[in-house]
């Protein structure tokens, strides 16, 4: 039974089928365009609404009842200090956890539980971290609604990002490097600290930047712990004139951050405040996008440069 169609029939069939190829290529391009155009619209919207308000005074003024005098000084200082705490807490903890999981962890149920946990934490909604921090940091530990509490909250939030990125960086180092170090008599820690860590720094950095970009834009958990929306003063400076010249009083100070300031202005009905929101949003957007772009660029460079 030979039902093979003739060459002419085959050709007609192919023409018919290839229409679907073309149709899908068009649909796919359109879908991609929806994403990209939304991004462009969002950026343009921020730019048009916020650009007129963006000037030196806006960056150096406190929020105010009068929209044209309001600025984001306390917000960006607050964001910077919170990020400092977040980085100091999340980076060592995340890198150490990743090193343990990649280089030390035995294959047993404890490790399995930790692995499942890291994956699960990455999927926990950010507001739940806010509730955790409200119950634990603010009330149980008595940290209050402080920069320290906010920084630690965001550190927990980005911990999975740092761990996953570090693990990937470590995993990409070939085992020959490890064997080479061991063959010279290195202990495990010597091998890790002198070889694995230095070689995985670019990868770790990429993960840290992405994590920090996420933390700086997070609003919900910081609101949940009770950050104030109207702060017209700065936290105490970390450097003091008298001995010991370093002060940690700022850690316990009340604060606000960029996204909360933006949220506060967005929810005001006056158009003038919404222009302030757009201007704050523009600053925030440029900050997060440049951090993300830097991370993408670093990863791209990394793939190009390293050929194990």
């Amino acid at each position: 039974m030979n039902t093979a169609p003739s060459v002419a029939e085959v050709r007609a069939l192919i023409v018919k089928h290839k229409r679907w190829d073309l149709a899908f290529a068009v649909i796919g391009t359109l879908a991609l365009m929806v994403g990209i155009l939304t991004f462009v619209a969002l950026f343009a919207d921020m730019l048009i609404d916020g650009m007129p308000r963006l000037n030196y005074d806006f960056l150096t003024s406190f929020p105010s009842r009068r929209p044209e005098q309001a600025g984001i000084l306390s917000a960006w200082v607050g964001s910077t200090l919170v990020m400092l705490v977040t980085a100091v807490a999340a980076v060592p903890l995340g890198v150490a956890a990743a090193i343990y999981l990649e280089e030390y962890a035995p294959k047993n149920w404890v490790t399995e539980i930790i692995e499942v946990n890291v994956t699960n934490l990455a999927g926990v909604p950010s507001i739940v971290y806010g509730l955790l921090a409200l119950g634990l940091f603010v009330y149980q530990f008595g940290l209050g609604q402080s920069i320290l509490a906010a920084g630690l909250t965001l550190a927990l939030l980005i911990l999975p990002v740092v761990i996953v990125a570090t693990r990937e960086a470590i995993r990409s180092i070939p085992s020959a490097i490890r064997e080479g170090a061991y063959a010279l008599g290195a202990t495990r820690w010597q091998m890790v600290s002198q070889h694995i860590l230095p070689y995985s720094i670019p990868g770790i950095l990429t993960g840290v930047i992405i994590g920090m970009a996420r933390a700086i834009g997070e609003t919900a958990p910081v609101i949940t712990i009770g950050a104030l929306t109207f702060i017209a003063f700065l936290p105490p400076t970390p450097i003091s004139g008298a001995f010991p010249f370093l002060s940690f009083e700022w850690l316990t100070a009340p604060f606000t951050v960029m996204p909360i300031q933006m949220f506060n202005w967005t929810s005001r009905p006056e158009a003038a405040f919404q222009a302030n929101a757009a201007a704050a949003g523009l600053v925030l957007l440029v900050m997060t996008l440049s951090m993300n772009a830097l991370a993408i660029y670093l990863r791209y460079k990394l793939r190009k440069n390293i050929q194990w």
Partner: peptide, 22 residues
Amino acid sequence: KPFLELLGGVPTIIYGYFALLF
């Protein structure tokens, strides 16, 4: 791909503004 990644990196408060006012 990097463009889409950037789309995922935009703070959600900014999306909120965009939804409400655009």
